[in-house]
Simulated assay, not measured.
Amino acid sequence: MTIGVLVGLPHLREGPILNKARAMQMPALISANALSRWSQRQGWPEWLGWKLDQLRNARGLASLALDSAGFVAMARYRGFPWRTDDYLALAASYPFRWFASMDYCVEPEIAADREEVLGRISRTIRANLDCRRGARDLGIEHRLMPVIQGRRPEDYERCLDALALDVSRTRFIGVGSMCRRQVRGPEGLIAVLDHLDRILPPGLMLHLFGVKGSALPELAGLDHRILSVDSQAYGIAARQDAFRRGVAKTDELVAEHMQAWTGRQLSRLANPSGTRQPEPACAVPDKPPTDPWEQAIVQARAEIRQCVEDGDIGHEDVTTLWIEQWAADIYRDALAG
Rank of each mutant, 00 (worst) to 15 (best):
V7H: 09
L18R: 02
M24R: 09
A28M: 08
L35A: 02
G43I: 03
G43Q: 03
Q54W: 14
A62G: 12
D67A: 10
G70C: 07
F71E: 03
F71H: 01
R78C: 04
P81A: 00
D85N: 13
L88E: 01
A89G: 13
A92R: 05
M102I: 13
C105M: 12
A112P: 11
E115V: 03
G119H: 03
R120K: 07
R123G: 11
G134T: 09
A135F: 04
L138Q: 09
L144F: 07
M145N: 03
V147E: 01
R151Q: 15
P153E: 12
C159Y: 04
L163K: 09
D166F: 06
S168P: 00
R169T: 06
R184W: 14
I190W: 11
V192N: 07
H195E: 11
L196T: 04
H207I: 08
D223Y: 00
H224T: 09
I226R: 07
V229E: 08
D230F: 05
D230A: 05
R239C: 04
T250S: 15
A255N: 02
T262Y: 14
S273Y: 02
P278D: 08
P278S: 11
A283S: 14
C307H: 14
E309Q: 15
G311Y: 13
G314S: 08
D317R: 09
T319W: 10
I323Y: 08
A327T: 04
A327R: 08
A334G: 02
